[in-house]
Design a protein around this nucleic acid. Structure first.
Length: 574
DNA sequence: ATTAGGG
DNA sequence: CCCTAAT
């Protein structure tokens, strides 16, 4: 029997949520498990992604995807101080940085740790020595099917519409960032809400060599094939059409089987995330990439975000020991491609929790200028399911969000084909069927300038709590009526049904809300009217609450055996 | 994803 | 409303 190796690609030190962890038995089963440092597959795949459907994009603009996996040391320190929260992704030991843009003229890929391979790449690009490489040297050769790399660049698109790609240097004390900066300057007018295009310039600021590359390492480099000619030494405009902010579900170009991938964030029941050998159970969306270190600063109600990286957190591969390195590489490639094959969507995590409600405003989600602790803000690239493409960044299409936060216009922009205030659902449908929509992950901002309150504990501050909390929406009498009616008929243990039957259109009322409301209703009904607050609920309704509650409490046991009670019973009882 | 219950 | 544990 051929032994297999199960390779696990992930972040050292990252502990999976208990739920998401593989059962001990399974882990034990692995014949051979090796943990590798972060992979920079993403860059490669992203490049592939961008290739696909490229023709449909450049009509009015160009997309860019920023991918970076680098954790700048100083930022790490800051973040640690900031929240004290465990930052499982911040092991700082590995990672890569990359900046990808479909704009063929400009800077593409950046790695922060370079190895021999990369250095050679530099040389091939005309950089005799790493120490003498200039950004524009790379840019100039972007038309070559080679790799373009420059150390540690941070691309940022701030809400102030200035976009920059910054070379961060090697981190050595002698590195002067300013000297290495390459800036993308957006011409976007902050006050121009109707500006359709996100435009900017890329302008290498440095005229002196980039800092030492030293012994940085990067295991892989993104090889992009679609870079055309261009010289970024000179400022050139680039445009990101608003309409291109969506990733269309494109055709798969790799005939590989779909397999289950591990989601270190939310996939709680995956006990089979190998690439081989077993069928997957469930095909839920799996977060394949996790962004790290999204941080932000704000001013004037603008939220400035910087996504420092998208990362493939973990990837499990089982492969025979006799397999070739090449086959392993292909397998990894397949894995990543598969993840991305069905299109991407962006996942958002705030305070370690996924934010699924796209209708929430940033403020409600806790992404506000008030909240300066967004170190736990995370973006992830997730495969969208099936043929239904999910709009990226759909939350930004929420009318409220766009009204309230300039970020929408500055950074994300609204689909120009849309009317002023498109409804989320509206956008959904259209975007899902629009072929020329492409993805763009606009990111980032300048430095971490936000004031920091000492928040050493993982626990959120009240401010954060408040920001994260949904807005309070007292139940109207009408709603109470509907709720009471539904509970009378369905009982008290079927809140999902209650929701479906009586609150289908009340998007903001979750079944948990209904359950909670019933709880308070029962309480309200029991206390004296003087103690009640808020809009008074008709006593008649409260009486019905009490009766229904009593009934269903009494029949709770039977509920398990007997099916939904004849509504007549309840009616009679009432 | 739902349910139940405490905060 | 939020958060969690348990389904």
């Amino acid at each position: 029997m051929v032994s297999h190796k199960v390779l696990e690609f992930g972040d050292d030190g990252y502990k999976l949520p208990a739920q998401a962890r593989a059962p001990r038995s399974l882990r034990k089963r692995r014949i051979y498990e090796k943990k590798l440092c972060a992979i920079d597959l993403l860059a490669t795949v992203a490049g592939t992604l961008l290739l696909e459907g490229e023709s449909s994009v450049n009509a009015g603009g160009e997309n860019c995807l920023v991918v970076q996996n680098t954790v700048k040391k100083e930022l790490q320190a800051e973040e640690n101080v900031l929240s004290g929260s465990p930052s499982p992704f911040d092991n700082g030991k590995c990672g890569f940085s990359s900046v990808i843009t479909t704009n063929p003229n400009h800077l593409l890929v950046v790695g922060d740790k370079l190895d021999k391979e990369v250095v050679e790449g530099f040389s091939n690009l005309g950089c005799a020595g790493s120490d003498s490489c200039k950004v524009r040297n790379f840019s100039k050769d972007l038309n070559h099917p080679g790799v373009n790399v420059k150390p540690d660049v941070v691309a940022s698109i701030g809400s102030n519409s200035s976009t920059e790609v910054r070379a961060c240097g090697s981190g050595s004390p002698n590195d002067s960032r300013d000297d290495d900066d390459v800036h993308l300057f957006s011409r976007n007018n902050d006050n121009d809400d109707d500006d359709e295009n996100f435009s900017g310039y890329i302008r290498p600021r440095l005229t002196r060599p980039v800092p030492r590359i030293g012994d940085r390492r990067i295991r892989k480099i993104l090889a992009s094939r679609h870079w055309k000619g261009g010289n970024t030494a000179d400022a050139k405009p680039w445009y990101c059409s608003k309409r291109s902010y969506y990733l269309h579900n494109h055709q798969r170009s790799y005939p590989i089987k779909k397999r289950k991938y591990f989601d270190t964030i939310s996939d709680s029941n995956s006990d089979d995330y190998r690439l081989q050998g077993k069928t997957h159970k469930g095909n839920r969306t799996i977060s394949s990439m996790k962004s790290r270190n999204a941080s932000f600063v704000s001013r004037d109600h603008h939220v400035r975000l910087r996504i420092k990286s998208f990362r493939v957190p973990e990837l499990f591969i089982e492969i025979p020991e006799t397999a070739t390195v090449g086959s392993l590489k292909r397998m990894v490639m397949e894995a990543v491609t598969t993840i991305l094959g069905d299109g991407l969507r962006v996942g958002l995590m705030v305070q370690g929790k996924k934010v699924r409600d796209d209708s929430k405003t940033l403020l409600q989600t806790g992404i506000s200028e008030e909240n300066t602790h967004l170190d736990s803000l995370g973006f992830s690239l997730e495969p969208s399911l099936g043929t239904t493409s999910q709009p990226l960044l759909s939350s930004y299409l929420s009318e409220n969000a766009c009204d309230d936060l300039m970020l929408c216009r500055d950074n994300v922009l609204v689909d120009p084909n849309h009317d002023s205030t498109p409804s989320p659902s509206d956008s959904f449908g259209k975007l899902g069927s629009t072929d020329d929509s492409r993805a763009l992950v606009p990111i980032a901002s300048s430095a971490l300038l936000a004031p920091r309150t000492p928040n050493r504990k993982f626990k959120r501050t009240e401010q954060q709590q408040a920001a994260h909390r949904r807005i309070r929406r007292p139940f109207s009498v009408t709603e109470v009526e509907a709720l009471v009616q539904a509970v009378e008929n369905l009982g008290t243990g079927r809140w999902r049904d209650v929701k479906v039957h009586a609150f289908v259109d009340a998007e903001h009322r979750t079944y948990v809300d209904l359950k909670d409301k019933w709880k308070t209703l029962v309480h309200t009904a029991r206390i004296s009217p003087q103690q009640r607050r808020g809009e008074p609920v008709p006593q008649e309704l409260l009486d019905r609450v009490l009766k229904a509650h009593a009934y269903w409490s009494q029949h709770l046991m039977h509920q398990l055996q007997i099916e939904p009670p004849p509504s007549s019973q309840v009616e009679a009882l009432i």
